[in-house]
Write a protein that binds this DNA or RNA. Structure first.
Lengths: 333, 333
DNA sequence: CTGAAAGCGCTTACAG
DNA sequence: CTGAAAGCGCTTACAG
């Protein structure tokens, strides 16, 4: 049987109130009483029932996390950052995905109403944004880990996409590339427009404005990156670099260039975005703009915990710096 | 304010007992009463507090999952399988990692005592096995997703490692490789010994027993795979194939062979194990023995849910089939 | 078929 | 400094 606070109280010869105070408050308890109760707690191995504590206090000391998919290459890093931070604060992490339509969305919202968690971390909530906004308005603390949209109504953390795009341009210009192909992500995403703007402006400032025919919307997949580059080459387009808006598309570009008999980086330099764990293991190793995924997870988790502690966020919109990781796909050997 | 069962009861003009029965039982309630209560529940948007239900019922309808790391290449697939299954059953998933020593282990065990979840899924619990065994003995339902050890004391799901090793051998023999290098994982892992046994036996049966000097213990990392192959080549060893016990090591082998000027698969064929998401995106695309990671997650989750439902497991030790995915690193173009 | 009451294991005014 | 009692929001015998 479970050891309860009543057991501890009885054996220690005090009231449940006193045991509760030993557990939860720093003062109001006589030193020797406190020591004695502590001893009994340890001896019995008593741990308060989280359900009962939650019911009495009206809080669960648990945060929820909603992700669109767990199999994206960088999701593990974000998750690890979140879990580490949340665990260290003594909170639990309840994980949800929303990849199966209304059914799972409904189940998720009912978990919210059920008070299963006190606050929510959401990654790139494209389809679920309206729902989240409703929950947020009803008082659920929410922090977005959001690399796609622009959501000033939520506290959120993103990477410095514009600066990342500019840095990619700076690097390509530095290695002498004047005619880059841009394999953009879906243009409805804020992050994509930011990366593009930063890149375009930097190229213009460098004295060679982009050729609009070489800015192509793609969909962040390896397959589409590969196919797009193949098609452009077959149409006779020329370019001396590829800036892909994510690493998967860059890997696709690598494959298409190889198939076409072009050398990377000699004929065409390739730079990606994300720095997924496999980026350095590609052939050639992929130069890329790094997003600090783990740190983004940690930061978002810290923000949510602060909110739950009743603190004001000094800055509800955190932008973490990106940086170019130079590897052989742009640098040669 | 939260809508409670008392609100529903008052507005519907019935007792809390009746509302509870409408919520939880199929019978014992008059048809029209039931309909009326349902209507009030919907109108008010009432959702029972999971904490209160848990306290009253002594169960949390939540399962825990303990993983050593969230950033391993195949972990996302396992997690996705688990989350999908658990969510579909209306359970929550509480995620824990144990990468920060005794501190996090202690925090984890206290969550168990706190009754935060009803059952546990654990992935490759090398260091935490003793702790898990203790919890299991105390009555916590546990299912292992375990590709490393052999733990007959727990219900668990693994991949068919021995058969996978044999299949790798069969494939290499079929493409004419008679002198393979084996880049084994740490030999203390059961899965490693199984893969090795299957591979060795199949090669022996094929008429060419392995050269013991070409069976090397490695550590499942890309760096060690690369370094080991580099060293062997520099020592003048010859081999016409590499069987790596995981895909990361295989990717390392690919890099070392390339650096040495050897062609894959012409000079040396390479086959890995796992089929991580990036395997097909390598150059050349990596032939590998696929472990059904997502299915392993789903199966383990289903087993745990069955246990929680009070069912007996028809088979507490489930072995899921592996299969060779043939790509260019062994097959040429 | 329905309800009053006790109980799940805590916390928290309130009183002393 | 300490405790009796009410309350958190449910479920579940028990009685009718």
């Amino acid at each position: 049987m479970r050891v309860t606070i009543a057991d501890v109280a009885r054996i220690a010869g005090v009231s449940k109130t006193t045991v509760s105070r030993v557990l939860n408050t720093r003062d109001e308890v006589d030193h020797s009483t406190r020591a004695h109760v502590r001893e009994v707690i340890d001896r019995l191995g008593y741990v308060p029932s989280s359900g009962a504590v939650g019911l009495a206090r009206g809080t669960s000391r648990t945060v929820g996390m909603l992700v669109p998919s767990l199999t994206w290459p960088w999701m593990g890093e974000v998750l690890q950052g979140v879990v580490d931070t949340v665990e260290a604060a003594g909170f639990g992490l309840l994980l949800f995905t929303c990849n199966r339509g209304t059914d799972s969305v409904e189940r998720f919202t009912s978990q919210v109403s059920a008070g299963a968690f006190d606050g929510l971390l959401a990654v790139e909530p494209e389809d679920t944004l309206a729902m989240l906004a409703a929950l947020h308005r009803k008082g659920l603390p929410v922090v977005l880990i959001d690399d796609r949209g622009r959501h000033p109504e939520f506290p959120h953390v993103t990477a410095a996409n514009r600066e990342g795009g500019a840095a990619a341009a700076g690097h390509l210009l530095a290695v002498g590339r004047r005619r880059p192909l841009v394999l953009a992500g879906p243009l409805r995403f804020g992050c994509v427009r930011d990366r593009l703007d930063g890149f375009e402006d930097a190229y213009a400032a460098g004295g060679c404005p982009l050729d609009p025919a070489l800015v192509i919307e793609s969909d962040f997949t390896e397959a589409d990156g590969r196919e797009t580059v193949r098609r452009l080459l077959s149409e006779g387009r020329t370019f001396d670099a590829v800036f892909a808006h994510n690493d998967l598309a860059a890997v696709g570009a690598l494959a298409a260039l190889r198939t076409a008999g072009l050398r990377v980086p000699d004929d065409v330099a390739v730079i990606g975005f994300d720095d997924i764990p496999m980026a350095g293991l590609m052939y050639p190793p992929l130069t890329t703009v790094q997003q600090p995924m783990r740190e983004m997870g940690e930061t978002a988790a810290r923000m949510l915990l602060a909110l739950l502690a009743g603190e004001e966020l000094s800055d509800p919109s955190v932008v973490l710096p990106t940086s170019v990781v130079i590897r052989q796909s742009t640098a040669g050997v």
